[in-house]
């Protein structure tokens, strides 16, 4: 049997790297455990997608508005851009842990800068999404109008709720890092949050493809 005591990568997602010593090794269980949660969350999303797919036939619109009546492709493009850019900036935040003197002085400043930029982009996403929900409700396309709209609001709303949680988590890390410094606890939180944030962008691929653009064809 081949033994490899220090594999290149201990867990999926960005690894801290050997220069972080103990913290790098402890990240393995911590991040793997979080992946188990993320995958169970993926199953939840999968079921919401399945319900949506099963409810998108014209019959389920019950004579009410369909995607062509309320989907604003410009707004969806903005939301997609915000989320994709925030995925990049969240990666930059984790990468700042790999700088020399990581977590101290200028490096900690860069970490906080990327986290705040990610939060701003995430907020931009939520702002456009909520604006779309409000205009849908005003035109009579609320979640109670038809089975299709119930599935639509549940699926898109579930993702929006996740983004809200991810935003709060991001800001919590900013405060934690400011108060306690970049210690093991916040490094591991940052790794897990980055996995969560990338995961939400992956879910969004399914949303803009099947729910928004697919509905407009």
């Amino acid at each position: 049997m081949m033994s490899n005591p220090t594999p290149e990568s201990l867990h999926p997602g960005l690894n801290l790297g050997e220069e972080h010593g103990e913290d790098h090794l402890e990240a393995e269980t911590s991040v793997f455990g979080f992946w188990v949660f993320v995958m169970s969350d993926l199953v939840t999303f999968g079921m919401f997608f399945a319900i949506f797919a099963a409810s998108s036939a014209p019959m389920w619109m019950a004579g009410g508005p369909g995607p062509k009546d309320f989907v604003d492709i410009g707004s969806i493009a903005w939301q997609t851009g915000f989320l994709l850019a925030s995925s990049l900036t969240s990666g930059m935040a984790v990468l700042s842990l790999k700088e020399r003197h990581a977590g101290e002085g200028a490096s900690r400043g860069r970490l906080i800068f990327w986290l705040l930029l990610t939060a701003v982009l995430g907020f931009g996403f939520l702002y456009r999404e909520i604006a779309d929900f409000v205009s849908m409700a005003q035109m009579g396309a609320g979640p109670t109008r038809s089975g299709y709209l119930t599935a639509f609001w549940s699926l898109v709303g579930l993702h929006g709720a996740h983004v809200t949680a991810g935003l709060l988590w991001c800001l919590t890390i900013v405060v934690g890092v400011l108060v306690r410094g970049v210690d093991k606890r916040w490094k591991l939180a940052l790794l897990r949050w980055a996995v969560f944030w990338h995961f939400l962008d992956v879910i969004w691929i399914g949303l803009f493809t099947f729910v928004f653009l697919g509905g407009l064809i």
């Binding site: 594999p7 290149e8 990568s9 201990l10 867990h11 999926p12 997602g13 960005l14 690894n15 393995e28 793997f32 992946w35 188990v36 995958m39 169970s40 993926l42 199953v43 995925s87 990666g91 996995v195 990338h198 995961f199 962008d201 992956v202 691929i205």
Partner: peptide, 24 residues
């Protein structure tokens, strides 16, 4: 996304992680 953002790969990865994703 899986490859470049989440750094999931078939090489140098612990077996359990991939099995988790594939099983899901």
């Amino acid at each position: 996304h899986l490859r470049f953002f989440l750094h999931l790969s078939f090489r140098g990865q612990q077996k359990e992680d991939l099995q988790l994703v594939l099983f899901t």
